[in-house]
Design a binder for these strands. Sequence first.
DNA 1: ATCCCGAGGG
DNA 2: CCCTCTGGAT
Length: 225
Amino acid sequence: MTRRARRTYRLLAGRYPDARCELDFGDPFQLLVATILSAQTTDRRVNGVTPALFARYPDARALASADRAEVETIIQPTGFFRAKTDSLLKMASALVERFDGRVPRRLQDLVTLPGVGRKTANVVLGDAFGVPGITVDTHVGRLARRLGWTGEQDPVAVEHAIGALFPRRDWTHLSHVLIFHGRRTCHARRPACGACPVATLCPSYGAGETDPDAAAALVRTEARA
DNA sequence: ATCCCGAGGG
DNA sequence: CCCTCTGGAT
């Protein structure tokens, strides 16, 4: 690991000491369901519906034979409720039919489940099973770009790049730290560069800006100075 | 208005 | 590569 990468990690981890998965479910099935529900919503909203959902459907077998309309009603506040209900019922059926009702522990199995993409799979692997992996969501992709990654932009390439840059780290924790940074500071539109612990290491904050969002933020920051 | 800790489908 | 699916936050 380069000196720069080590420093970046230390500064970011120090800035977000509470970085972790905010969907707090020990049970892999429940974490999987909650993570599917969390697409395009806040964890707060997900945590608002999961008690009712899991009271009725605590495991894959129950959810596989669930009443569609009832599931839709319960998860409605999380948005995309029809698509999500569809995913949940199919996903639960797939678990029952192909994995004996248990959540598989391998990435290649997880991503075959309906409604489960690479992002969701990595969250479940890391937070339910302790299998380390880099989770690349929209925040992490943006961070990689702003911090100087100019290679392929697809999530798998970004994953490999980060993995190579931070070998033998706790990738699960690293992922949460990066996601927290994207959410709380390095926003898409108006990144709070003034509050950023790695501003002096960031090529997007200084010169040679390539990301138009960060470039706009830089202009604002300098205008204030 | 614009974005969000996405995924599937055309 | 584009679109759609939903509701809430800012």
